[in-house]
């Protein structure tokens, strides 16, 4: 398993380089212009000058090479400088966003707290609710609990966040006045009261996001458990006199985790990717809204960098999932 991991890690470098090239070419090919949001009152000659100042006049391969150097060589140096107080990267040009004319990575770092607070919490809450629901629904298939769970999760999944978000706002913010709905990113948690405020402002977006996660994961959990509950080894375990709890939570659960691990691993990069619609509805301004804003403004360096970070996370978490398969089911061998 160790050799497999190392081999995959080594292999992921060319994979990621290839992915970055494909993303770059895709963005290049996509119609769009960083001047799209400039008011129409600005004459075309001025826009042309602004494009040149952004470096758009250079050929594609030059710009791709520049981005590679900036991302893989200069940005790590900046990070080292930041932590150790060195000055390796001084004077070097970093990846600069076209919208804000500031280093992309600085903005990404700025956005991580609210993204993790809201989207990360929602994901964890979602998983924590989904697993028990899935397990119990399968164990008591077609019970009232199972039917209710099915109904709620399926309806929850069919109703998109652009509807649930405003619905919760109307009910809880406008009518009842319990929670704020414009997320305050400047808020800092220092004591109990500020933690309570943080909790209150997180609760609505977390509810919206957790609903989707719960629905998805609990369905896979339930289906997979059902597949395993009737297997021979379960009968054997019961015959051995093991308690129901041990049979279900140890034997069946472990064997049912493979699809669930896949789904959870696929969702992990999405935490960092944020939740575009929900972030927009609640003005969370996390990484999701950063990405969509950059896409609409055709801020190519920002889009390229963000999508590439997601690509790294996707490759990484899929590797983790593959390793977990081997642990969950030792029969799975990759070599």
């Amino acid at each position: 398993m160790l050799t497999f991991t190392i081999r995959r890690l080594v292999l992921s470098v060319p994979t990621l380089l290839f992915i970055s090239l494909i993303i770059f070419l895709l963005l290049e090919l996509a119609p769009g212009d960083p001047m799209a949001q400039v008011p129409l009152t600005v004459p075309p000659e001025v826009k042309e000058k602004m494009r040149e100042a952004l470096g758009l006049g250079q050929p594609t391969h030059v710009r791709f090479w520049k981005w590679l150097v900036q991302f893989f060589w200069i940005e790590p140096q900046v990070m080292i400088d930041h932590y150790f107080g060195t000055t390796y990267a001084e004077g070097d040009l970093r990846v600069i966003s076209w919208q804000t004319r500031s280093p992309v990575m600085d903005i990404v770092v700025q956005r991580i707290p609210q993204t993790l607070w809201v989207v990360g919490t929602a994901y964890i809450v979602g998983i924590l609710i989904a697993l028990p629901i899935g397990i119990y629904s399968a164990y008591r298939q077609y019970s009232v609990f199972d039917q209710c769970g099915t109904f709620v999760t399926m309806v929850g999944f069919s109703i998109p966040p652009f509807f649930t978000g405003p619905l919760l706002i109307v009910v809880f913010s406008v009518q009842l006045g319990w929670f704020p709905f414009i997320y305050d990113t400047t808020h800092k948690v220092t004591d109990w009261d500020s933690f309570v405020y943080q909790f209150r402002q997180m609760i609505l977006p977390v509810m919206v996001l957790a609903l989707q996660t719960t629905a998805q994961i609990s369905r896979f959990m339930r289906a997979s458990m059902l597949d395993n509950l009737n297997q021979d080894y379960v009968r054997t375990a019961r015959a051995k006199g093991l308690s129901e709890a041990v049979v279900v939570t140890v034997h069946v659960l472990r064997n049912s985790m493979i699809p669930v691990v896949t789904v959870i691993a696929l969702g992990m990069p999405a935490i960092f990717g944020g939740a575009i619609i929900t972030e927009q509805v609640f003005s969370v301004n996390g990484i999701g809204s950063l990405l969509i804003g950059a896409l609409f403004a055709n801020d190519l360096p920002m889009v390229q960098t963000l999508t590439f970070i997601f690509a790294i996370l996707i490759v990484f978490f899929n590797l983790i999932a593959d390793i977990l398969y081997g642990i969950l089911d030792p029969r799975i061998r990759y070599d």
Binding site: P31, G32, D33, M35, A36, Q37, K47, N298
Partner: peptide, 15 residues
């Protein structure tokens, strides 16, 4: 999409 429509990308047929 407004970002294409109001953009001046000469390669896009939709500006």
């Amino acid at each position: 999409n407004a970002s294409v429509f109001f953009g001046g990308d000469p390669g896009s047929p939709d500006t």
